[in-house]
Each structure stands twice: as structure tokens, then as C-alpha cells.
Amino acid sequence: MSVLVFAENLQGKFKKSAFEIVSFGAAIAREQQLPLAVISIGQVADDELAKLAAYGAAKILKVEGDAFQSMNVQPFASAIAQAAQAEQAKVVVLSASFSGKSIAPRVAIKLGAGLAENVIDLPQMTNGFVVKKNAYSGKAYSFVELISDVKVISMLPNSYKVVEQAGAGAVSSFSPQLTPADTAMKIRETVRSTDKVALPEAELVVSAGRGLKGPENWGMIEELADVLGAATACSKPVSDAGWRPHSEHVGQTGIAISPNLYIAVGISGAIQHLAGVSASKVIVVVNKDPEAPFFKAADYGIVGDAFEIVPRLLSAAKTFKASQN
């Protein structure tokens, strides 16, 4: 028996989110007194794979092959489910990333397992197996007990710290059996900006709204994000107007995020916007209207004109970063 974690790589490299999810899986494995197996899918060099051992992986299963060249969720789900069976996994842990969200439900069905999505804390395992997850678009949490023998959970990015803990980390190859149905979906084209921080798992986010007046004014927001190593986001009307891509829209009908720091510039703080960002650990609001509702949901507020404050924050961020190095 074991706990199995799927560690996602991006073009052969593991990001911090992968180490986060391995650390999370290791904590579950420890509590369950089971070994931790980690599955990696796609081309990853052995020295990169070896990094997973530092977060508690006792065993690392490596899956490679043509079907896994790009993230195609069906073959990935088959590989993970088959590895779970081979390792007799009691708990399968994935990240609630875009791809994790598309894979976890398939793995759960294949294993006849109960599924909990968007888990935000370590499950309570002393009495049953109870997870805490987001519900009602950030307005509530729900506690759900998984009563199936095998359990599948997906963890919301940024919900658990990276914890170093050495594991044996023995790497072995695993070859799943695929069916033609697994490869029914063809990927025609992938467009990815690798230089940008992906929003769902960003630790820092700089976001702006209609208060910025027009797309031509986003230069300072991007620069601030750049200096901080943050992702950029926006309110819904901004993406609706085509000022920014839809993929940056956060809120109830956009992406829900939970970064360590969320800086909102020229955003009023409508309830639908808050629904997607209120899980942020620290919120800073910059708005010229002292009555803007967002101030009530913020940790820090600056009343002022964005065109005056953001350049100041930019120089502050540069000094701050320089003092860290």
C-alpha cells in the first residue's frame, strides 16, 4: 500500500508547486504510515527527478513515451490510475491546476474512488478522512468525508508549504497500457508564455481594474509584477473590454486565486471579484476613492491615484528586491 502523488513538470522541469504537492503527499503518507510514491509523466532528466526525493518521495515512477509528449489528460489519467493500482495506493494526490482538475475526476472514476477537489488543508485522518475544501466561490469552506476505500484529492496551489524531508527516491520506469480511446483528443497547437508566472499558482499577483482607464496604461502594472516576480491579473470588465486577455480575469467567473500577496489597483471590490481573490493571504488595495468597498476586504489600503501610487510602488519594489539580494 502507498500514497501516490502526481508531480507535474513544465517542459521537463519541476516548479515549486510540484515540490509543494509532494510535501503535502508526504505529510499524508506519514500520518497514514504508508510509503510515498511519486509519479512523473513526460520527458524529465534523471537529475531533475532526483529532486523529488528531497521532499519525501520513497519511490519515483517515471512514465515516458510518445503519448506523453504533451499534457493530454486522458493518457495521463490512465497512467496515474494504473500506477495507483500497481502501488496499491490508498490516497492519490494531484494539484488542482488546470491539468490536475481535468485528470483527477478521471482517475477517481477509474479507481472507483471518492474525489475531493480544491482541498486547502491537510486532511483530518484521526477519525475517518475529512478534507477541507473551498465552496460557494470563496465565500465558504466545506468539510467532506471520503468514505471510499481509495481516495483521490486535488490540492489548491499555495495551500501547503514546501517541506524538505529526505526520501529514498528510487527511480523506476512505469509503462501504462493505453487504449485508442485514450488518444481520441489531438492537440493541434500549444501557446505558452514560459517567461510569465502562471496565475493559478502565483505566490504574488498584481491586478488592475477599470480604474486604469485603458490598455495603454498596463505597462506600469506589468513592470511592477516583473520586479516582484508576480503574475498579472485583472477584473472582469477589463478582460470583457479586451484590454487584457480572459486568462487574466480573476473572480467568481474567472480564476480563483490564493496567493500570498494580492495587490489590487483601481478595482472597486465587487462581491464577484472578491469571490475569486478573498483567499489571498495578504491583500493591498490602491484606489482613489476612500469609500471603495474593496478597502473593507483588504489588509492594507492606499488612497490615491493609481498613476501616482504605482510608480512609487515600482521604485519601492526595486529597492526592496535589491535589499534582499
Binding site: 483528443m185 492537440i187 500549444t190 501557446v191 508564455s193 486568462s247
Partner: peptide, 12 residues
């Protein structure tokens, strides 16, 4: 939508 970008896919 995918992590950090988008994908064009074809399905039967």
C-alpha cells in the same frame, strides 16, 4: 486554457 497559456485541440 492551460497553465500559462492556451491550447487548440481537436476531438471527434
Amino acid at each position: 486554457e492551460i497553465e500559462g497559456g492556451k491550447e487548440v485541440v481537436e476531438v471527434p
